[in-house]
Computed example of a mutant assay.
Amino acid sequence: MKKKFTLWAYFAVAFMLAMSSFSIANVVEAAIPKAGFIFFHDEASTYDANFMRAAEQACREQGVEFVFKTAVPESEECTKIAAELVQEGCRIVFADSFGHDSYMAEAAKKFPAVYFITATGVKSHTANLPNYHNAFATIYEGRYLTGIAAGMKLNEMIAEGKIAPNKAKIGYVGAYTYPEVISGYTAFFLGVRSVCKTATMDVLFTGSWYDYDAEKKAAEQLVAGGAVLLGQHSDSMGVPSFCEANNIPNVAYNESLEKEYPKTFLVSSKINWKPYFTYIIDSVKNGKAIARDWTGHMADGSVEISAINERVAAKGTARALAKAQKKLSNGKVNVFDVRKFTVSGAQLNAFEAAISEGDVREAVKDGYFHESEYRSAPYFDLTIDGVNLLNTAY
């Protein structure tokens, strides 16, 4: 009888251990979040492709299943797609476009147990939803550095007699007159001006984030107006392809185009979203809070510039950028140093930035404009001297 009891006890313990192991495995599996990603365009857009690469890398490294939804419009369709991702088991839903912001906030209301995040958005400040978040990075740092590369190229062209100092004009193709675009091209121009004092810049807006024909046409118009080097905040290959065909140096965005356009690609900047994606996945896995509004920096790897195309860049460019990057990182240089630019002929000594509804803050302190410090999305929206806007319809 004792032996029988012992045998049954053995089987009972073994069964309990087996069930315990099964339960623990299930809990661990359940704790690994599934992530859904909403993209405004597809991989043909350099902007969206940059997010896709970072999302895939972060998810694979973290052992997380992921789902991509592409060509999602900035409309109620976004809320619908977000809900579909939740129904597919996603505990994290991320959207990559400013125009998705309000629609993602609506989804967050419906699914309080799911984390919703929109890049470049601002609604996290007013939505009052613990599961809704925004994120961006100080891309103006990268833009500033690529501007230095562009300015050095202009200096080389002047030294070689290709252009006169007063003809050092840059053309810039922008999508919209949003602070994100204005902040970016201003930082770029300030980088140019830090090394080429005679430089000016014409800006032309297309009214679209991704429109190959419109961007190419804008590039043509800018060059016809005297631009000898082009930059962009738009997402197609319209500008780089025009530059390559017409031997115009080009500063790109979101990825290196040296392989595709070896004769004219100079350098590019981008936000590296992998650190943020890794952060939110780790936070959800371990039950840690996610920052309501997160800002990445060059110092933490969230802002990068590509390798210099030495065949196009002026001599010494790589060394100059490394030196400037070090000064940015240690605070010896501030991109929006108000001593370095004027607005309507005067130094900018004060500026009330509207961070969100009812939240207005002084952005100029300690001699510089404090961009992306009160919220991640940029709020610098001034036109500084030396920049000429050819249209403002968008």
Results as ranks from 00 to 15, higher is better:
residue 323 K to M: 10
residue 249 P to T: 04
residue 112 P to D: 05
residue 112 P to A: 06
residue 63 G to D: 02
residue 138 T to G: 03
residue 59 C to E: 05
residue 102 S to F: 15
residue 175 A to Y: 11
residue 252 A to W: 12
residue 145 L to Q: 03
residue 247 N to A: 12
residue 54 A to E: 03
residue 350 A to S: 10
residue 104 M to Y: 11
residue 62 Q to I: 03
residue 7 L to G: 02
residue 368 Y to W: 15
residue 73 P to Y: 06
residue 218 A to E: 04
residue 50 N to T: 09
residue 70 T to P: 11
residue 230 L to S: 03
residue 326 K to V: 08
residue 156 E to D: 01
residue 97 S to W: 14
residue 123 K to F: 01
residue 173 V to T: 06
residue 213 D to L: 14
residue 388 N to Q: 13
residue 3 K to T: 08
residue 308 I to L: 01
residue 214 A to R: 06
residue 24 I to G: 01
residue 37 F to I: 00
residue 55 A to P: 14
residue 378 P to H: 05
residue 21 S to M: 12
residue 189 F to S: 11
residue 8 W to T: 05
residue 330 N to W: 14
residue 320 A to P: 08
residue 78 C to K: 05
residue 57 Q to N: 10
residue 206 T to C: 03
residue 170 I to Y: 12
residue 227 A to H: 13
residue 87 Q to N: 11
residue 262 P to C: 11
residue 226 G to H: 10
residue 265 F to Y: 15
residue 374 Y to H: 14
residue 154 L to G: 07
residue 107 A to Y: 04
residue 280 I to Y: 12
residue 1 M to P: 00
residue 303 V to F: 03
residue 54 A to Q: 05
residue 118 T to L: 12
residue 98 F to P: 00
residue 323 K to R: 11
residue 317 T to Q: 04
residue 61 E to T: 11
residue 27 V to Q: 07
residue 124 S to K: 13
residue 246 N to V: 02
residue 277 F to A: 05
residue 168 A to W: 13
residue 313 A to L: 08
residue 249 P to S: 03
residue 88 E to C: 05
residue 46 T to Y: 15
residue 132 Y to G: 00
residue 285 K to L: 14
residue 158 I to Q: 02
residue 34 K to T: 06
residue 174 G to A: 10
residue 248 I to L: 11
residue 161 G to L: 11
residue 362 E to L: 01
residue 314 A to E: 01
residue 153 K to N: 01
residue 312 V to I: 00
residue 182 I to W: 06
residue 89 G to R: 08
residue 373 E to F: 15
residue 82 A to K: 07
residue 293 D to K: 07
residue 372 S to H: 14
residue 248 I to C: 09
residue 342 T to M: 13
residue 204 L to T: 02
residue 60 R to V: 00
residue 248 I to A: 06
residue 37 F to D: 00
residue 344 S to D: 01
residue 327 K to C: 06
residue 18 A to S: 13
residue 100 H to Q: 11
residue 191 G to H: 10
residue 284 V to G: 12
residue 394 Y to M: 10
residue 288 K to H: 10
residue 91 R to E: 04
residue 307 A to M: 04
